[in-house]
Amino acid sequence: MAISYIEYQFTITPKDPATEILMAELGETGFESFVETEDGLLAYIQKELWTEDVLNDIYILENNDFSISYVINEIEQVNWNEEWEKNFTPIVVDNRCTVRAPFHEVPNTEFDVIIEPKMSFGTGHHETTHMMIQHLLNTDLKDKKVLDMGSGTGVLAIVAEMRGAHPIDAIDIDNWCYLNALENVERNNCKQITVEEGDASLLEGRSYDLIIANINRNILLEDIPTYVKCLQPNGMLLLSGFYKEDIPAISEKCLEHSLKFVENLEKNHWVAVKYVN
């Protein structure tokens, strides 16, 4: 049976950084997919999950620094492949890693990651994914055991394998992400990645040299103690999915569990922070 969706067509002025902030806030209220447009953003939520007050907690709509308006449409099942093909362009990270869709030309970069994002988060276009790829490119991952928590499309796990990591666990609580990551792992001929559906409760008794978590601030604050228990001595924790002003709260939680701040990358108010034990 086709799933009906509610589509919000947002017109945003200025677009940066409002579009990214809006996507992050909408993602926490049930919206499943986003397509950036010339004027702003298309956002989709299943009709059965939609309520008239779904935007009540979207605080950027009240921010006078931005002008954001929208119209609402009800649509039948979206052809996500067609939507992404119209709007998804390849990205290149540090001239070393290309993230592209299957229909794009093969690039001349060291790493070539093929992603069919569908309704999952993590094409590399979002600042947080881009910066996490940068961290992975600048980290020695050979023979490292890695966890990609909140793995979305699986792009970070795929980059980690290409950089020599093994074995790798990719975990996401969302079924769409789980299924999409399975497809992308196979599409990139990855052999070292195990994709799982679930949350941090799956981590009991596991250990890793590197843990990647690109999630939102509140989940990170809740799960950092679990991540620390899973870190091997001299392990590394890469965290993203939050803004520069959230670093003190994140760092305080890490310090409580004997993790030391090393560095952070910043892009359009988003950050990706490195900690070690």
Rank of each mutant, 00 (worst) to 15 (best):
F88T: 03
S151D: 00
N189D: 14
V93M: 06
I114Q: 07
I158F: 08
E245K: 15
P14F: 07
L221K: 11
E161R: 00
D94N: 14
N214C: 05
P233F: 07
N108V: 10
V106M: 09
T29N: 14
L220H: 08
L26V: 06
I168M: 05
D209E: 06
E256Y: 06
L61H: 01
E36C: 10
V92D: 08
Y44I: 04
V99E: 07
D172H: 07
A2S: 13
I21M: 11
C177E: 03
K86N: 15
G150M: 04
D169I: 08
D172F: 05
I60H: 05
S69A: 10
I133T: 04
I60C: 04
Y243T: 03
I215D: 01
I115T: 10
V273S: 14
I68R: 04
D169Y: 12
E204V: 10
T89N: 15
I247K: 13
M119H: 04
L22Q: 10
T109H: 05
F31C: 10
S240M: 08
N63I: 07
P225S: 04
T37Q: 10
H135A: 08
P107T: 12
G164M: 02
A181H: 03
A213N: 07
N79S: 11
T51G: 06
S258P: 01
R187Y: 07
E20Y: 02
H257P: 00
K118C: 02
N216A: 09
T98W: 02
V54I: 15
G241K: 11
T29G: 06
E85V: 03
W270L: 06
K142L: 12
E252V: 12
V54W: 08
P167W: 03
L26Y: 05
I6E: 02
S67I: 12
T226E: 11
M162W: 02
E52A: 14
E28F: 04
I168V: 10
K144Y: 03
M23Y: 06
P17F: 08
T153S: 11
I72C: 10
Y227D: 03
I68W: 02
Y59E: 15
W84H: 11
